[in-house]
Design a protein around this nucleic acid. Structure first.
Lengths: 153, 153
DNA sequence: GATAAATCCGACATAAATACTCGGGATTAA
DNA sequence: TTAATCCCGAGTATTTATGTCGGATTTATC
C-alpha cells in the first residue's frame, strides 16, 4: 500500500522541471542533480511522463524536457497514474460492466475498496502541479541561499 | 499502491467471522472453506488480527475465533492496519516532530503525501465492520440458496 | 564533416516484498 | 487417549521494485 519511487521521484522531478524551465528545455542531468536522483533511472521516468503526454522532449545537444501543457492543467493524479499505473488500492471490477469480478453480487468488501479508491482519486485529482510550483517558489524565496531541494520522499 | 492479499483476505475473513459467529468460536477451516482461502495462510492472518486485539482465540478441540469486541467498534482501518501495517501511501515524516525527513522544510510533495494519507485514513476509519455485516446479511437474504460468498478481491 | 551533448530504447541484475507452505508443538473437549 | 484445534517459526517460489548499462539516434556547434 505504498507509492513506489517512480511516483515519488517522478512527481518531484516534474515540479523541478516546472520550476526551472524558462524558454529552453531542461536536461535530465540537471534535474537529477538537483533532486538527487540517478540519471539513468530518471530517464526512465521521463519516458513514462512523455508517453503519457505530460512532457515533451527536445533531442540532441542542448535538448531536454518541457511541460507539454501548462502546470495548471496537470494534476498530481495525472502524474502519478502515468508513473504507477492506476492508483486503485484494489483492482476490483465489481462496479464495471466489463469483466465484473466473480461473485461481485454477494461481496461486501467491494464497497470498502470503492470508498478507498474514490478517496485516493479525489485527493490526487484535486491538486494541480501549478499549486506545488507556486508553493515551492514561496518556500524558496523564504529560504534564500539555503541548501538545494533534496528530500528522500 | 495496492492492498496485498493480507488486507483483502483478512477483511473478508473477519466479515465472515462476524457473520457466522453465534455463541461458539468459529474455526479457521470453516472460514477458509467459505472464503476460498488457504487454511495455513489464513492462520497467519488470524494471528495478526489476534495480536492486534481484534479477535480472540479459543484453543483445543471445538476451538476457533471470536471477535474480541463488538463489530460496531471495529473499523475497517483497524483491520487493514493490523494486517498491512500503516496505510500511509508515503511514509513521510515531514509533519512529525520526531525524525522529520531531511529537507522537509523545502519539500512541497509532502503536502501531496499528506492529503493522500489523510484521504485514505478518513475512508477506512469511517467504515465499521458492523456496517459490512449488516449489508452482507441483507444481500444473503435476497440471494437465498445461491452459491457461497466467494470473491477473489 | 566531426564532435559532443542530449534523448531514446531494450535488456539485464539485484534486492526486497509477497504469497504462500510445512512440520511440529501446545491445548483441550470428548 | 485421541482428535481437533490453535500456535509458531522457518523455508520457498514468485513477483515486483529499483535501478544499471551499452549502444543507437538526433542535433547544435565548431
Amino acid at each position: 500500500m505504498k507509492l513506489s519511487t517512480k511516483g515519488r521521484y517522478g512527481l518531484r522531478a516534474l515540479v523541478d522541471l516546472a520550476l526551472n524551465c524558462r524558454e529552453e528545455a531542461v536536461c535530465i542531468q540537471s534535474i537529477a542533480h538537483r533532486q538527487n536522483i540517478s540519471e539513468s533511472y530518471l530517464e526512465q521516468l521521463m519516458r513514462l511522463l512523455r508517453k503519457a503526454g505530460l512532457v515533451r522532449s527536445v533531442r540532441g545537444a542542448g535538448g531536454g524536457y518541457q511541460l507539454a501543457k501548462p502546470a495548471e492543467n496537470i494534476s498530481v493524479g495525472d502524474v502519478l497514474r502515468a508513473l504507477e499505473g492506476n492508483l486503485e488500492a484494489v483492482d476490483c471490477g465489481a462496479f464495471q460492466k466489463e469483466h465484473p469480478c466473480e461473485g461481485a453480487d454477494i461481496c461486501v468488501t467491494k464497497y470498502v475498496w470503492k470508498r478507498i479508491n474514490d478517496a485516493i482519486r479525489q485527493a490526487v485529482d484535486s491538486i494541480m502541479l501549478a499549486e506545488l510550483v507556486e508553493e515551492s517558489r514561496r518556500i524558496q524565496d523564504s529560504h534564500q541561499g539555503t541548501v538545494a531541494n533534496v528530500c528522500s520522499k
